[in-house]
Design a protein around this nucleic acid. Sequence first.
DNA 1: GCGGTAGGGTGAATCGTTTCATAAATACAT
DNA 2: ATGTATTTATGAAACGATTCACCCTACCGC
Lengths: 340, 340
Amino acid sequence: MPTTIKDIASYAGVSIGTASKVLNNRGNVSEDLRFRVQAVIEKLNYRPSALARGMKIKRTHTIGLIIPKIINTFYVKVIELVEKEVHNRNYTLILGNTEEDLEREISCLQTFSDMRVDGLILASAGRTQEGRIQQEISSYRELNIPVVLIVRRLPNTDLDTIELENREGAYQATRYLIQNGHRRIGMISSSINTSAGPERVEGYMKALEEFRIPYDRELVHMGGLTLDSGYIITNTLLGLPNPPSAMFVGTNFQLLGTLRSLKEKHITVPEDISLICFDDTEWSSFADPPLTVIEPYSEDLCKIAAELLFDRIDGAYSGEGRHRVIPTKLVVRESVKPIA
Amino acid sequence: MPTTIKDIASYAGVSIGTASKVLNNRGNVSEDLRFRVQAVIEKLNYRPSALARGMKIKRTHTIGLIIPKIINTFYVKVIELVEKEVHNRNYTLILGNTEEDLEREISCLQTFSDMRVDGLILASAGRTQEGRIQQEISSYRELNIPVVLIVRRLPNTDLDTIELENREGAYQATRYLIQNGHRRIGMISSSINTSAGPERVEGYMKALEEFRIPYDRELVHMGGLTLDSGYIITNTLLGLPNPPSAMFVGTNFQLLGTLRSLKEKHITVPEDISLICFDDTEWSSFADPPLTVIEPYSEDLCKIAAELLFDRIDGAYSGEGRHRVIPTKLVVRESVKPIA
DNA sequence: GCGGTAGGGTGAATCGTTTCATAAATACAT
DNA sequence: ATGTATTTATGAAACGATTCACCCTACCGC
C-alpha cells in the first residue's frame, strides 16, 4: 500500500492537518514540527496522491492536447513545443491522437474532461458541421475548462483560436509558381471538413485571378492527411488529359505520396514538374530535390496557444474568444523550375 | 459546478448507491429505476469524475509513456503505435518527452506515479549508472504499477524489457559496407549512457573482426540524438587525416546532421562517401539519394510492449522480468556504393 | 401462518487529500 | 493578574465516487 498522509501524520506524531500544512508550506507550524514532519516525509519517500489532491482542490495540473495525425511532422513539432510550454509551467501533458477519426476525437474530448484537465489545446480534425464536437466542447464550458483551438476553427463557438495564414500562404505559393511561368497548377489541400482546406483554396484562386488564369476545378483536390491520399490524388492529376506542370501540396505526408507517385512514373522534380509544399520539416532540405515550401511559424503558434490558455487558467483573462493568425513564409529551395 | 452523482440521485429520487449501480451496470436494480436514472444521467449530461472514481477503485485507466526525444521519427512511430494499443484497450495515454534530460525524466516518472497511472512504458534516455532512475522505478514497484522498458535496458532491475537487435543490426550494416569494399567506416552511435550505444559498437566491431579489419577508435563516436550531434561528429570524422569512405549513423536525426555536414562540404552520397543508417522513416526513400537503412520492426516492438504491460495490469502474469528482442532488417536503397 | 430466500433499495464508510472552525498555548500590554 | 492578540495545532467536514452490510418486501413451499 502506498504511503498516505495519514502515515506521515501518525509516524511524526502530529495531526493530518499539520502534516498537510508542512506538505504545502502553508500556515503556521513551528520550526520544530516542520522539521520533524519533513524528515518523516523523506524517510518514507512519501508523495501525495495527485488524484486525492486534484479532487479536493479542483486542479489537476494537467493540460490536454488533441491532434489529428501524429505522423505528420507538423503535429510532431506541435507536440514538442506545446509539451515544452506546458512542462515549463509545471503542468503535465496528456496527449490524444485521433487519426482524423471523429469518434476518437469525441472520446478523447470526453476522457480529458472526465479527467478534469485544467485546459485543452485542440487541433480538431474537422467534420465540424455535425456539431458533435461543439456539443462536447460545451461540457468544457460547464466545467470551466478553457479551450484553445489551433490550426482549425470551430464554427458556432467563441473559443480562443489560433490559425495559420492559410489563405496568404497558399496565395504566396501559387503566385510564386505563376511567376515561374506555370499556368496549370495542381492543388492537394486538406479535407473540406476543416477550415484550412477551403481557405487555402481561396488563396490559390486569388492568385489565379490576379494573373487572370482560368480556374479549372479538376486541378483542385482535397484529401486526408495521409501518404495514400497524396498518392491517389497525384495519380489522378497526372492522368488528366492536360496534366499540371506544377503542384501545390497541403501537408508533408501528402507530399510523400506525391513523391511516390512521381517516382513510379519516372517523373522528375523539378524538370518535369514543379513542387511546392505547405509545411516544413527538417527533411525537406535533404529531399531530392530540396523542397521549396511554405513554412508556418510553429513555435509562435504553440507559444501563443500556451499563453492564451494559461491566461485563462490563471484567471488573467476571461473575456470573449481571441483570435490570432500565424504568418507563413516562402522558403525557396530547388523543387520549382521556371518554364517558358 | 459539474453535475455529480449526488445530483443524479436526488434528481431521480433514488439513493446514491442505486445511482452508482446503474452507472456501472451492476447489482440488482429494477428495470423501472434503471430507466429513470439513465434518463436523468442523459438529461443532465452527467459524466462521472475520473478523479473520484480512480481514487476509490485504484485504477485510473491511464498508461504513461516516456520517451527521450520526440523529434526523432522512431519515437514518433512509437508514440503512434503505443497510443493505438492503449486506446484499443480503452486506456488513455499520458506522454512525457524528456529531451534526454535526466531531471525531466525523473520529474515525469514522479508525476506519473503521483497520478497513479496503471502502467508505464519507458524509453529511458540513459545515464542509468547513477541509479536515480532505478530509485524512482522502485516507487512503481511499491505502488504495484507495472513498468515495461523499451529500446533501453536498465541495470539492476528486473523489469520486462524489449530491445532492438542492436548488435546484430550494427553487424549487418557494417558487414554490408565491408562487403562493398569499405575498410574505413565511421560510426555515430547513440550515447554511451544507454545500452544501445555500446551494443551497436559491439556489432560494428564484430564485423570488423570477422573481416580482419583493425579497429580504429578515432572512427567511432557516441553522441546525443540530435541533428547538431550528427553534424559535429561528421565534421570531425571528415577532418581526420585519413577520413572514412563510409559511415554508419545511429539515428535518423543524427543522420540529418551528417547530411548537412556533407552538403556544406560538397561531398556527395554515395559517390564520395557511403551512408547507412539505423532507423527507418518514410522520408528515407525520398532523400537524396534514397537511404540504405537498418529498419527495426517498430510495430512489433510496441505491440509486444503493450502485451507485456497489460498482461501484468490484468494480472495474467506476475513473474519475473521478461526479455524480448526485436529483429532488424537491412533495406538496401542507394546510399551505399561499392569501392575498389 | 411461518421460516427461508431472493430481489431491490438504502445509508454509511471509505479512498487521500485540503480547509476551516476551533481550541490550546503563548505573548504582550495594561 | 487580567484580558486581548497572536501563534500553533487539532479534528471534522468535504471533494465525488464505490462498496458493503443491512433492511424491507414479496414470494414460495410446507
